[in-house]
Each structure stands twice: as structure tokens, then as C-alpha cells.
Design a protein around this nucleic acid. Structure first.
Lengths: 218, 218
DNA sequence: GCGTAAGGCTACCCGCCAGTAGGTAGGCGG
DNA sequence: CCGCCTACCTACTGGCGGGTAGCCTTACGC
């Protein structure tokens, strides 16, 4: 009308708090995943979120608080995604198979979430590292339980139990590493990734619990 | 003699440049491994090195330069340690075995070097990440060559070759992850660690190249 | 219409830290 | 004993970025 044609910037204004918090968290995950915790600046996050800096502080607290909120949200997402794919009444190998597929699907879809959790969270140290490590330990123990159950089911508990935690750590690491590799090869489907890993480790496990042992030939 | 007994601080003075550079690099690796690149301050590094800050700048340049020098030195050390243990005329599995043992011995002895290379270097981004990634890629391709050679030797090249790079990425990741786990379990020897991994992956590989394939049952 | 609370901003403060200017001290050739 | 070079230091600056004070503005109940 009599309004100056000077566009009042199209940025959506006066949104409810919950929406703003989501926007801020999304932006934070993006920026943290790109630069890491220390190199990420609150100014850039507020820019990406389309919100001024004080908003972040009033809604989500300090930089550490914000990072913690990111970690918690993404970790929850990841765990839920995995658990959604697993049916506990299946055989151990099928459980592992479905868990892996869900995992790779998640990583492909939310690569920034994965980057923040896997690469950045560990480097901050303190409470966050502990939190993420906890999640990782839970994953490892879950896998260890599968391994041991597969072992005892076949009657060969002892050896598998002894090295179970280490082997599970290795397996989880293998899965993570393959996930990173897959980030550079987006054309490989989650099913293929998961089946590679199953071929690699499960047949290995199979042989182990059949009593086969590799040792250095003199 | 007539000197004041006021101890002139015992800090060694007027050392040759090469020695100082070594001290500075040692200190830098230590501090970077504890805090990561961004959180590490040049003041702390100079403190730990027992040297004033301008020394670092005149000898090794900017903070980035210093970090780069650390990365290069530690990466070289690691690769040399591994290559020292491998004899290329052995069978693939024995080569892998010896390589793994050397790797775990190195990680146990120079845990700070390992931390800097594995955890911190990737988070800085840019040239360093590329440098470390390069080293990692070389390791992966080395392993992939072993896998493929083991495969073709048995006459089953195709399938192993196709997934070789991915599988090798998974294997390298498993080794790294087990190394991290071992940092919290220092009582496990490098031989045990390496043999766990051999049992996990080699028997799996063996089955693969015998033509066995795991797939979801129905 | 009018108080009031919640959404939102601009503009600032201040500590920390990478990087430097400019100086001192000890050895060595002459 | 004199110049000079190399080893080494104290003491500063400049800016970046986390965090905040204080103010405006829209919506909504009454």
C-alpha cells in the first residue's frame, strides 16, 4: 500500500519457540559437523539458523549446552533408527544384519549427524566424549551379547567370551569405518554395505565357534 | 665461586637448533594429543617444551606449520614402524599378521602419536586431514592388495576384487578401533590383539575366497 | 484501545591467544 | 677486547568470538 517497496526481509518472523529450537539445532549440527566444536562460531550458527545470537543463548544456553543438545538429539535419533530395524526374536546373525542395514541407512540420510557424533564429539573431551563413548559402549556390549549368544548356542563359550569385548570393539569399528568410506561412495546401497560386513565378520565368527583357530605358521 | 648461590634455573640453555626442534615437536604432540588442535595453546606448548614462544615461531613457523610438522613426523614414524615388521616374501596372512603386531606395538609405545594422528588430525580439516587420509588410504590399498592377491592366488578374483576396497576400509577401521580399545586395556599384548583380529577377519576372508557367501535367510 | 508478555534484535564488553617487536646474553673469530 | 652472530627472552598488540544489556515489536486477553 503506502508501504515503502523496500522489502521487509522475507525471513519468517515471530515463530513459536519449539520451531526456533529445531532450526537452531539443525544449524548447529550442520556447522559443528563442518568445523568441529572449537572452530565453529556462534555467529555462524546464528547466521545459518536465520536467528540472532541472543536467541540461541536464551533458548539453548551456552555453546557447550548447545553442543550437548546436538549430541543428545543425534545420538537418540541414531539409536532409535537402529532399534526400529531390529527384531529381538530373530537369530543373532539376522539381528546383526538388520541392525547394520538400519545403521547405514541412517548414516546415508543424516551424514551430518553422523559426522558430529563420530568425529567431533570425541575431540571435545569431558562430558560429551563420555556421553558418546557410553553410546558406543552400549553398542559394543550389544554386539558382544550377540556374539556370545551365538557362541554358547553352538556350545563353544569360553574362547568367544574371553575375547568377545575386544572383537566387538573391532566389529563396531569396522562398521563405523565402512560408514565413513561409504560417505565417499554414495552409490553403494545400505544393503550391500551391510552384506559386505556380514560376509567379512560373520563367516569369521562362524569359523571361530566351529573351533577353527588361525595362528602364525611358524 | 663468588657466584650467588641463587640457583640459575637448571633449564638447559643455548642448545643447538636440532635439539630444540625435537623438544618442541615432542611437547607439541603431547599437548595436541591432550586438547586437540584448536584448544591447544602455543603458550602451553612452549611451557611444556621449556622454551619461549618466539623460539617456536622462528624454528617451526605458525601454529598450522607446527601441527603439520607433528603430523608428518608421527605419520612417518608409524609407517616406518609397520614396514620394519613386514617381510614382503611371506604369505599374505603372515604379512598381515606382522603388520598388525607392529602397529599395535607402535600404538602402545607412542600413544600420543597415535591420538594425534587418529583423533585430532581429521578434525582440523584442510591439508592435514588430506595428508592423514592419504596415509590411511595407502594402508587400505596395501591391505586390499593383500586381499586380492590372496583371492587370485586361490582363483577367485572377481568377487573379492569388487568389494575389496570396502572390505579393506572395514578391516583398517577394525584395527584402529581395536587399538583405541586397547588403550584402555594396556595389559593385553600386541600379539594377542593381532591374533584376535586375524581370527576375526582372516578366517572370514578364507571362507569368502572358498566361495562361501552369507545372505539373509529368507 | 491498552497492558503485558513473549519473540526478536542491535550493539556492545572483555578475555584469551596467535603472532611480533625489540632487546639481552653468551660464544667465537680476529 | 671488539664486533657480530646465534640462541633466547619479556612484554606487548590486535582481533576474534563467547556472552550480555537493553530496547523494540507483534499478538492477544480484557
Amino acid at each position: 500500500m503506502s508501504e515503502e517497496d523496500q522489502r521487509p526481509p522475507e525471513r519468517a518472523r515471530r515463530l513459536p519457540r519449539a520451531v526456533r529450537e529445531r532450526q537452531i539445532l539443525d544449524a548447529a549440527v550442520q556447522v559443528f559437523s563442518r568445523h568441529g566444536y572449537h572452530a565453529a562460531s556462534m555467529d555462524e550458527i546464528s547466521d545459518v539458523a536465520g536467528v540472532s545470537k541472543p536467541m540461541i543463548y536464551t533458548y539453548l544456553g551456552s555453546k557447550e549446552d548447545l553442543f550437548g543438545a546436538c549430541i543428545r538429539r543425534e545420538a537418540t535419533r541414531l539409536l532409535e533408527a537402529i532399534q526400529a530395524g531390529v527384531q529381538p526374536d530373530l537369530s543373532p546373525d539376522m539381528q546383526l544384519w538388520h541392525g547394520l542395514r538400519s545403521f547405514y541407512r541412517f548414516v546415508a540420510e543424516y551424514r551430518e549427524s553422523w559426522t558430529v557424533l563420530h568425529r567431533q564429539a570425541l575431540t571435545v573431551g569431558g562430558a560429551f566424549a563420555a556421553e558418546v563413548t557410553d553410546m558406543r559402549v552400549r553398542a559394543i556390549q550389544l554386539v558382544a551379547a550377540l556374539v556370545v549368544s551365538a557362541g554358547t548356542r553352538k556350545g563353544v563359550g569360553e574362547q568367544a567370551e574371553f575375547s568377545g569385548e575386544g572383537l566387538s570393539a573391532a566389529l563396531v569399528g569396522a562398521a563405523e569405518s565402512l560408514a565413513d568410506w561409504a560417505l565417499d561412495h554414495p552409490d553403494i546401497s545400505d544393503g550391500v554395505l551391510a552384506s559386505w560386513l556380514m560376509n567379512l565378520v560373520w563367516l569369521g565368527f562362524n569359523d571361530l565357534i566351529e573351533g577353527a583357530v588361525w595362528k602364525p605358521s611358524e
